[in-house]
Design a binder for these strands. Sequence first.
DNA 1: GCAATAGTTAACAATTCTGTTAACAATTGC
DNA 2: GCAATTGTTAACAGAATTGTTAACTATTGC
Lengths: 134, 134
Amino acid sequence: MDPRTQGRSDARQEQLDRVFGALADRTRRAMLDRLAAGPARVTELAAPFAMSLPAVSRHLKLLEEARLVERRVDGRVHHCSLSRDALQDVEGWLQQYRSFWQGSLKSLARYVESGRGKPRRSLKSQHRKDKHGR
Amino acid sequence: MDPRTQGRSDARQEQLDRVFGALADRTRRAMLDRLAAGPARVTELAAPFAMSLPAVSRHLKLLEEARLVERRVDGRVHHCSLSRDALQDVEGWLQQYRSFWQGSLKSLARYVESGRGKPRRSLKSQHRKDKHGR
DNA sequence: GCAATAGTTAACAATTCTGTTAACAATTGC
DNA sequence: GCAATTGTTAACAGAATTGTTAACTATTGC
């Protein structure tokens, strides 16, 4: 199955749910920002936030389940670091839309964006019915 | 402010919340998939889903608020199409992490991933205290 | 051993999300 | 005009999210 076009695999959809869900929170994005500067333990990761440690602990758990973060337990200290895995999932998903931006549908996109204009011929679903232009 | 490094703008964080939140649902991702093939009206967009029209209508509203979808109203028909705006926000956010993957921190990432190995010198936060390797 | 440290899990409350059905508004076509 | 079409908004129920505090486990260092 072409990894660029398949979007029906349930496991893949669940993974995308987890990744985008994890990224949909600014606290978690800030944690990723911090980790992009280098590994950190949980307490370090929690320090900037006006939030209890258990709250941070569960944000971290979500990031880990989304495979955005990896954890190495060393005694009582948990070392966290960025993982590339899940962000590659995002890249792969985005790739699907890059073809839309850059490919033959670009002019159609602009056409619809403006509400009028000159779409290329031979593009399906033209819906040219707007008589009064919005 | 450098758009690659700034992550504190509240408006930008809200926009990222909206975009990632919108993408964190497989129904909405499927709607985007459909729109990548060309514009569609709401009923067309709703057809594949075992879901009421009001439910689809609100998914669509979220996609629009996240600037992932644009709408042109033509009489009673709403024509929907992909917008590039929000996906560019995602691209911009991801760019921050591409430097992590490809840049000087790559070896450190591998170091932490494996739990040992040879990190480059002069990288902060090394935490080399693991005596028993684990 | 025992106190301090690092972090998780449990239980709970407040909020947000996602779906439903019912009612509504606007446009189209006869 | 009026019935059918297209789509939204309102009101509500159930589930998921996100935070809290309290209790717990495991490890470290004296």
